[in-house]
Amino acid sequence: MTAVIEAQGLGKQYGRRWALSDCTLDIPAGRVVGLVGPNGAGKTTLLHLTVGLLAPTSGSIEVLGGRPAANPAQLAKVGFVAQDSPTYAGLRVADHLKLGARLNPGWDAALARDRIERLGLDPARRAGQLSGGQRAQLALTLGIAKRPELLILDEPVAALDPLARREFLQGLMEATAEHELSVVLSSHLVSDLERACDYLIVLVDSRVRVAGEVEELLATHHRLSGPRRDPARLPAGQHVVAASHTDRQTTLIVRTDAPIHDPAWTVSRLSLEDLVLAYMGKSTHTDHNGRNHRPTLEVQR
């Protein structure tokens, strides 16, 4: 299967600070990828590297087999909806569509017109007068109507009310189904992503903590609770992601491919949010350079 994003040791440094470090990804096509992480983790940096708004400081990244923003053909393959859905406040909705038509050879004018009509956006309205949800939908239309293979969205619903949020995601998923897009969607809330994503990347403190198909991650991660136990004494093959203890009880989040036979443990399923929180959890071993003494796990293929 062709990879839609391939990154090797990708890093971006600003002055002395590494906004993204040592990022290695291999994302297959046809997925809706959720990129989760707290604010400042490096999500926007990673997405900007993917669309070519930034150049890497170290490592490399290839999108759909080409260098990001290398030439018009490459730019046509990737659609981008940036944070806060920027639009030209002084230009009307119709002007934005004209912008898309003039600057993109692959522009689908009928699709754009239909979408605007169905959304109920007035073409004569200036973008500065639209609500947040309407601007997000306009930006999404611009991204979809150029008929890309990959659509990248940076926290598209963060500033939207719940109804606008739901409508945006519905529109996005519909377009994904109709045009067979690959999508990368970032958010600092897992709840936005749970329904839509089938591939997950967790980014914390400029590093990728986990990346893989959601189904596989949920199948291989379990919550174990039982009597107080030292996590280091678990059998090999069971990697501890997070641990918490009381006097009498230990609760572990582990990742393992094999079944768990120890009868002392109560095994339960994790929700996606639990999983993400486990990887995002407080790490007392992380120093300021982001060096983490917890295992960084990747999907085994």
Binding site: P72, L75, P86, L99, N104, G143
Partner: peptide, 15 residues
Amino acid sequence: EAGTHQLVWNQSITR
């Protein structure tokens, strides 16, 4: 300042 460079530099023309 408006962030529109993220919009226009993603269209199918180079910077």
